[in-house]
Design a protein around this nucleic acid. Structure first.
Length: 469
DNA sequence: CTATGGCACGGATT
DNA sequence: AATCCGTGCCATAG
C-alpha cells in the first residue's frame, strides 16, 4: 500500500513548493495512523535529515514531558477554549499503542495485518486487559475461530499447548466472549447464546427459562418443537414459543455473523482496516468531550540539527543531495502538522455536531455529509473525504467505529428499525415496517426496509415467523 | 395473491 | 468522473 518513493520523488524534483506541499498533505491525510506510521518510518530510514526524538514530548509545543499528554501551558491553553471540546494530538503511549507495547507478544497475524480480521478486531478490544502470557493464549484462541466466530479447538488443548492450567485459558476465553461480537470464542452455539443471554438478562422475559431452553432444549429450538420444549421447561406451549421467540430474535448462535455476515464488507478491498483507533473520544465528568488524535510514533519527529549544521560544510558532490534531503524533511514535517491540524478541525466540528451520537449511541446520529463539513471548514470536499477515509474512532463507550460512520445517512433509521422489530411481538412484513417507520418520521420505501434488514442481518418476516410460530 | 430478493436506473455524494 | 444509495419493477417462492 504505502509508497515511500512517492514523496521522495516529489521532493527530489524541485516543484513549486505549494504543489508538492499540497500533494503530500493530501496523500498523508488519506492515511490512517498505521499507514502513516509506515510512511514516516520509511522516510526516517531514507532521509538522514530526519530525526526521531525518543521520549515523550508535548505534541503541541515539543517540550519534553514528565507526565500527562501535553505540557502545562498547552493543556491550560486547550482548556481555556471554553465550551469547545478539547482536541489535541496525543502521543501514542497514553493508551492504544502502535509501537507502544513490548513487541513480541502477538503472532504476526496481528502486528502488521492490513485486512481487518475478526481476530485482530477482538484482540484490540481486550489486549489492554491482559498480560503478555494471557495475550498469547488469547491469540491462540482467536486464530482458532471459524467464520462463525466459534472455537474449533478444545480449550484443554490450548491449555496444554501453553502449559497452563485450564482455568487460566477459560478465563481468557471468557474475556473474549465479552468482547464485541458478543459470544465470540464460545465452543458451541449454545454457549454463545448463553453469554449473550447474560448480557440481556434484564430484557429477557424469563432469563432462567431461556437459559434452560438453550442448555437443554437446543434441538427442540431448532426443530421448533414448542410443545416438547414447553414440557421440558414445565410451561405452556405458548410460553415456550415466547421464549423461543426471544432467543431467535435477540441472540445469535453464530456471533461473528451478526457483524461480519452477508452484506457487510463484501470485498477485502474496502478501507475498513481499522484495527487501531486513530482518534479517541473520551467523556469527562464535566460533560466535555476530549478528543485525542493519535500520533503514531513514539517521540517527536524533527529535522536533525546536526544535519542542518553539516549541510553548511557539505562536500561539493553531496551538497545538492543533502539540500534536497533537508527540503524533504521540512516538507514532511510541515505536511504532517497540516494533516493533524485538518483532522483536529474536523473532529472539533464533529464532536459538536454529533455529540448526541458520540455519547448516546447509534440512534442519535444525525445525517451529515462530508460536503457540509467541507463548507463549514472552508476546504474542498475531497479534503474531508481523505481525512475521513480509513480512520477509526474509539467512542467513550469503548466501541471502535469507522470515522465514516459519522456520515452514515441511514444508521439512525436502521436503529429505529431494529428497535421496532425487537419490540414488536409479531413478525411484521416489510410493508408494515415501512409504515411504522413512516409514523416515526422516517419516510422510506418498502424496498429499502428490506435492504436495511439485510444490513442488520435480520431475517425476513416469514422466516422470523417460522421460527417463532 | 403476498412478501422478498435481484437488477438496474437516476439522483445524490464523494 | 466514480461511487453509493434509495427505489421501482419484475420474477420467484410460499
Amino acid at each position: 500500500m504505502a509508497l515511500p518513493s512517492q514523496f521522495l520523488y516529489q521532493g527530489a524534483r524541485q516543484r513549486p513548493q505549494t504543489t508538492a506541499h499540497l500533494a503530500q498533505t493530501m496523500s498523508l491525510l488519506g492515511l490512517n495512523s498505521q499507514e502513516l506510521n509506515a510512511q514516516i518510518e520509511a522516510a526516517l530510514a531514507a532521509n538522514p535529515a530526519l530525526e526521531l526524538l525518543e521520549g515523550r514530548h508535548c505534541p503541541n509545543c515539543g517540550r519534553k514531558l514528565r507526565s500527562g499528554a501535553s505540557c502545562g501551558p498547552c493543556s491550560a491553553k486547550l482548556a481555556a477554549e471554553g465550551d469547545q471540546p478539547l482536541v489535541f494530538v496525543a502521543p501514542t503511549d497514553t493508551g492504544y499503542g502502535l509501537n507502544g507495547r513490548s513487541g513480541e507478544e502477538l503472532p504476526e497475524d496481528y502486528s502488521g495485518a492490513q485486512p481487518e480480521t475478526l481476530a485482530s478486531y477482538v484482540m484490540r478490544q481486550i489486549a489492554t486487559d491482559l498480560d503478555a502470557s494471557e495475550q498469547e493464549i488469547a491469540a491462540h484462541i482467536l486464530t482458532s475461530l471459524d467464520e462463525d466466530g466459534l472455537l474449533t479447538v478444545p480449550l484443554l488443548e490450548v491449555a496444554r499447548f501453553h502449559h497452563v492450567p485450564l482455568v487460566v485459558v477459560e478465563e481468557v476465553a471468557q474475556r473474549i466472549q465479552q468482547a464485541d461480537p458478543l459470544g465470540v470464542g464460545s465452543s458451541s452455539p449454545s454457549e454463545a447464546l448463553l453469554v449473550q443471554l447474560v448480557a440481556l438478562e434484564n430484557q429477557a422475559p424469563n432469563a432462567e427459562l431461556c437459559a434452560k431452553a438453550i442448555r437443554e432444549g437446543m434441538g427442540m429450538l431448532g426443530k421448533r418443537q414448542y410443545a416438547e420444549l414447553g414440557s421440558l421447561l414445565g410451561v405452556s406451549k405458548a410460553k415456550a414459543e415466547q421464549i423461543a421467540d426471544f432467543i431467535t430474535h435477540n441472540l445469535s448462535p453464530y456471533p461473528a455473523r451478526a457483524h461480519w455476515g452477508s452484506l457487510r464488507t463484501p470485498n477485502a478491498e474496502s478501507p475498513s482496516t481499522y484495527s487501531q483507533p486513530d482518534i479517541a473520544i473520551r467523556l469527562q465528568e464535566d460533560g466535555r468531550l476530549v478528543v485525542e488524535v493519535m500520533w503514531p510514533l513514539r517521540g517527536l519527529l524533527r529535522v536533525n540539527p546536526l544535519f542542518q549544521q553539516a549541510l553548511r560544510e557539505a562536500p561539493e558532490d553531496k551538497a545538492e543531495q543533502w539540500k534536497l534531503d533537508m527540503e524533504q524533511a521540512n516538507l514532511l514535517i510541515k505536511c504532517l502538522a497540516q494533516r493533524n491540524h485538518t483532522i483536529v478541525r474536523l473532529m472539533q466540528i464533529l464532536a459538536v455536531l454529533q455529540r448526541q451520537f458520540i455519547t448516546g449511541g447509534d440512534a442519535h446520529l444525525k445525517p451529515l455529509t462530508r460536503a457540509a463539513i467541507a463548507e463549514e471548514l472552508g476546504v474542498h470536499e475531497s479534503t474531508i473525504s481523505r481525512a475521513v477515509a480509513g480512520k477509526a474512532v474509539q467512542l467513550p463507550s469503548g466501541k471502535i467505529v469507522p470515522l465514516a460512520q459519522f456520515f452514515d445517512r441511514s444508521l439512525h433509521v436502521r436503529t429505529a428499525l431494529k428497535k421496532i422489530i425487537r419490540d414488536e411481538a409479531k413478525p411484521l412484513s416489510d410493508t408494515k415496517l415501512a409504515r411504522l417507520l413512516e409514523q416515526q418520521g422516517f419516510a422510506i420505501a418498502r424496498r429499502t426496509v428490506a435492504k436495511y434488514r439485510m444490513m442488520e442481518g435480520i431475517l425476513p418476516a416469514h422466516m422470523r415467523k417460522a421460527q417463532a410460530a
